[in-house]
Design a protein around this nucleic acid. Structure first.
Lengths: 132, 132
DNA sequence: ATCGCACACGTTATAGCATAACGCAATTGA
DNA sequence: TCAATTGCGTTATGCTATAACGTGTGCGAT
């Protein structure tokens, strides 16, 4: 899924996520965009839906928040499964990929004849700075 | 974390989850326990909090639901990271463990000096039956 | 050209998930 | 006996997400 030109709302939401130094909830995004005419959650959710589809934004299931993809340039969907390390203290998120993990999980699902559509890997804990 | 004797509410919630053939939301559990005197969400959430702590129940972050641990006998916390395959059609959940995956993820976090506290792995898709 | 369709958008309302804050009762151990 | 802890019940509230409706715009097919 490659990203076509973003619409106005999509661009606004994406910009907010890019500028943030951590994940944001949909309602936080909404608040940051009130000055730009946003009034309702759906405006945010609809934009997010597309941005997720284009692979330029990720959803963090374990904290109900959204974050801009760490690879602005490339298509994130081509990296296989994306894993996240989320600091519970400062909120900072690190994104990474591990093909061996992908492989092991795929192996397991294949053995069970389970058709995987979307895989979530999220590690919550403390980043180096906050753990010190 | 070993499980002490469950309190009345904890036992009721656990029983509901055990009998269910799939994950349940907190509010679904509440509805199933109204006949037993449950009236408020907190009664469910407080019981779930303990059951999660004891390791006899898991929370599925990606669908905001709870499921009884697949290993009634043993302490689930001793298995390392728990992974789930969740069928989006029938709702059935398979639970599994893969030490190699654990190892890869731990390797990565150690490299980043990230102190992992809780890791979520959830694969959503279609089970063998539903994919056919 | 104009009709039909797809899509983005705006608005209101509502559904679904989770916790704050208060108070009471029972248990336990110093 | 007193203080601390834990479980429980209730009310209220906050946060997350979507349903359902209508509008406007662009664009290809007839």
């Amino acid at each position: 899924m490659n990203a076509p030109a973003l619409t106005k709302n999509q661009a606004l939401v994406f910009e907010v996520l890019e500028k943030a130094d951590g994940p944001l909830s949909a309602y936080t995004i909404l608040d940051k965009l009130r000055d730009h005419g946003f009034r309702a959650p759906l405006q945010v959710y609809r934009a997010l839906e597309k941005l997720l589809e284009y692979g330029v934004v990720h959803r963090l299931e374990s904290i109900n928040a959204f974050v801009a993809c760490a690879h602005p340039d490339q298509n994130c969907h081509s990296h296989g499964i994306v894993a996240f390390a989320i600091c519970e203290s400062c909120g900072h998120v690190m994104e990474f990929h591990d093909h061996e993990v992908d492989h092991r999980l795929m192996n397991w699902t294949r053995g069970k004849k389970f058709k995987a559509e979307k895989t979530t890997i999220e590690i919550r804990g403390l980043c180096e700075t906050c753990a010190a």
